[in-house]
Design a protein around this nucleic acid. Structure first.
Lengths: 207, 207
DNA sequence: AAAAAACCTACCCAAAAGGGTAGGTTTCTC
DNA sequence: GAGAAACCTACCCTTTTGGGTAGGTTTTTT
């Protein structure tokens, strides 16, 4: 049994090209092609493919919203975004929406097939630049702000929802000392409330 | 000029195997091999390789800490983790530490070379499972908690560091209403302070 | 040994937040 | 058109925070 692929792409020549490539393989076949999400969504359970190839820029519902919808209806569906966009926001939006992989449209036939195979094998095919972007997103650049050990402890306790009183108890220091550290933290972090301090510390990875 | 590779791996046969494979290519050569991070760190600027292949489990400084150190000294260094661990914490720790890629040790010679090439091309080589893990980490599963529109607005304002008074002004409602919504939010989120509410809302992606 | 950071404590006061009760309107759903 | 849910407001009072001053000790750096 071949793995079923559905293509959602409004550029018909491109869509046909993909289908051509896929239908020449032994493992995959294109069971349907759509030029918009709406039509694809109407036939979700009928098509029930192993993999969707999804364009992002589509008339009507765009690829990211379409991905969310399909994922809600068919949580096990694999959706590979195939698009020209390498803008980071769009990439991350697509991944957050539930995309399994993300390829750019300049891909070679081999790469398309490899991506399909990787998807079936439980992987997440990505083009080189995208993979790099994704990995980079983990690399939090160190903040220039330096908190002392004690200040970090206080902030961690605070972030866990403790009041100054209970933090004082836990750290065996007085509430006044907690406030003293907080004041310094606010200055270092350029904020003036505990909420902002906790959020900024989280954002800058200070804890 | 061949691209320079340094291997940090305490399993000598494995290290030799990698070197053998790499030295048989036209594009890469192993300029040094170490069985611990300390020795590698001593020769950072002397070796100055294009790519490090780094084991995680090493005597002394482990691969993740070593990666942090090397990245600090040589920010442009490409460090590929090569390890048996597929535990998610370790993978993400390594990526956060600055690893360029992450491969598992059962890789084939071709895959190793491909990974090196991908690295030089500015990519982030990952084995299939790792790529999937990384992509999955973006897919925030929707929380079962539902906040009303107004509650979200209040929480967003709060997360931006505004006081109840200024939130009241911005939303054209009274401070009492702010407090009313907050009370309901605390119940829904099972917390009892604004800090916790903001943090939980962020974590659960409610805003 | 001197200087600089980091750490600790106490006190004061004003502002902000938490928790409770008690009412009302608007909007959507059945 | 009844009921539910979301939304809104006003009180009350207690606790918690923020911001200030003014001192001290310990630890690290120069």
């Amino acid at each position: 049994m071949k793995h079923k692929v559905v293509i959602i792409e409004d550029n018909i020549p491109l869509s046909e090209g993909f289908a051509e490539i896929i239908n020449h393989t032994d493992d995959f076949e294109v069971v349907n092609r759509y030029s918009n999400c709406e039509d694809a969504i109407d036939n979700l359970t009928y098509d029930n493919p192993d993999v969707y190839l999804m364009d992002i820029e589509l008339p009507g519902i765009n690829g990211v919203e379409g991905t969310k919808y399909i994922k809600k209806a068919l949580p096990k569906a694999n959706i590979i975004m195939v698009t020209v966009y390498e803008n980071s926001d769009i990439v991350f939006d697509a991944l957050c929406a539930g995309a399994t992989g993300y390829l750019t449209k300049n891909l070679k036939p081999d790469e398309l097939i490899d991506a399909l195979k990787e998807t079936i094998a439980g992987g997440a095919p990505m083009s080189i630049k995208i993979a790099k972007m994704v990995v980079n997103s983990f690399q939090k650049k160190p903040s220039k702000i330096e908190l002392s050990k004690r200040e970090k402890e206080v902030l961690i306790q605070l972030s866990e929802g403790n009041s100054y009183d209970s933090i004082a108890d836990k750290l065996f220091i007085s509430k006044n000392t907690i406030k003293f550290h907080l004041k310094n933290i606010y200055i270092k972090l350029q904020v003036n409330s505990n909420i902002e301090a906790v959020q900024k510390a989280n954002k800058e990875n200070l804890l």
